[in-house]
């Protein structure tokens, strides 16, 4: 187990290194002078030169990349901003705020969004999928199948504004989506994020309903289920005690991979509802060609995905004792 973890973590670090280097080098291909953002309205050429020096932009690219890497572990000292303690991802070219601080600041928003949506996806998707499998061929199954076909075809940027218009603008059933800290007002956190959760999870929920249903149907045809039935176990307890365990294993694996997609969906959802999360930060960084912010967000995003994948692998072993990690 330890050996497995070490190997996975080392592999993850290599992937992160590659991603950061690629992003860093690609972005310097853009002919843009971030120094202007630090220069007053009437910007003198000599002030620009000074700022470029302050930002370390007069050094060769690989040296700049090296400084960036070292800064993560050892911190840096900028003439323009003063000390930047580790983990230092630099300062935004656009807003001049520390990148790490900005990401930490917005992290709860994206985390809340993803956790809430995951909860909806897993609970609702798996539940309806199991119900559909339980009542195979009956009206409930058909309704579930039908809605999952439509649900899987919906787009966040269409459903989002549409639901916002009807539920928020017109009916006033829900407050306009925004982020309320869970620690300050749990109920407000829930009501303000409910709509984004639903919108973000619609496509995924539909897919998980379909998957769970087919997995369950498959499991019910397995030998061990037949054995259990033959031994006189009620179909209810076979269904809820054994079959779902077998069905969950592939679902969890797929969910681990889907988390990356979910994070991507979070970008669109945040944009749709103007939520101040990491996705919105990323879109703004792209619009501003804000390299430090972009690098920071990309690395943190990729790191999240890599870590989640490792967690899923471990979880996999816990659910299915047949899997031996080693």
């Amino acid at each position: 187990m330890t050996g497995f973890l070490v190997r996975r973590i080392l592999g993850a670090l290599v992937i992160l290194l590659i991603i950061s280097a690629v992003t860093f080098y690609l972005f310097y291909a853009i002919p843009r002078d971030p120094a202007r953002a630090f220069c007053g309205k009437i910007c003198r050429p000599e002030t620009l030169t000074l700022i470029r020096h302050n930002l370390g932009m007069d050094e060769p690219l690989f040296v700049q990349y090296w400084h960036w890497l070292v800064g993560i572990f050892a911190g840096r000292d900028f003439v323009q901003f003063g000390a930047c303690p580790a983990p230092c991802l630099g300062y935004s070219f656009a807003t001049q705020e520390p990148v790490f601080g900005a990401i930490v600041d917005r992290f709860p928003v994206t985390l809340s969004l993803t956790i809430g949506a995951s909860a909806v996806i897993l609970s609702f998707g798996i539940l309806t999928g199991m119900l559909a499998a339980w009542k195979v061929g009956q009206p409930l199954d058909k309704i579930a199948s039908a809605s999952s076909v439509v649900g899987a075809s919906l787009q966040i940027y269409f459903v989002g504004p549409l639901l916002a218009f009807y539920l928020v603008d017109t009916a006033g059933l829900l407050p306009r989506p925004s982020y309320v800290a869970f620690t300050e007002d749990p109920l407000g956190w829930f009501t303000h994020l409910l709509l984004p959760w639903v919108v973000l999870s619609i496509i995924f929920t539909a897919n998980y309903t379909r998957m769970t249903r087919s997995q369950m149907v498959e499991q019910l045809a397995e030998d061990y289920v037949r054995t259990a039935r033959a031994k006189g176990m009620s179909s209810r307890s076979v269904f809820f005690r054994f079959a779902w365990r077998g069905a969950m294993i592939p679902i969890i694996t797929i969910f681990g991979v889907d988390l990356a997609t979910l994070l991507g969906g979070a970008i669109i959802t945040e944009q749709t509802f103007s939520l101040h999360g990491i996705g919105e930060l990323a879109v703004r960084a792209v619009q501003n060609t804000d390299l430090p912010m972009l690098l920071g967000v990309t690395i943190v995003g990729a790191a999240a995905i890599v870590v989640l994948n490792i967690v899923v692998d471990v979880l996999y072993a816990v659910i299915d004792p047949r899997v031996r990690i080693g």
Partner: peptide, 9 residues
């Protein structure tokens, strides 16, 4: 079930 699905869709 799928025909039903498409009609509902």
């Amino acid at each position: 079930s799928r025909r039903y699905a498409s009609v509902t869709a």
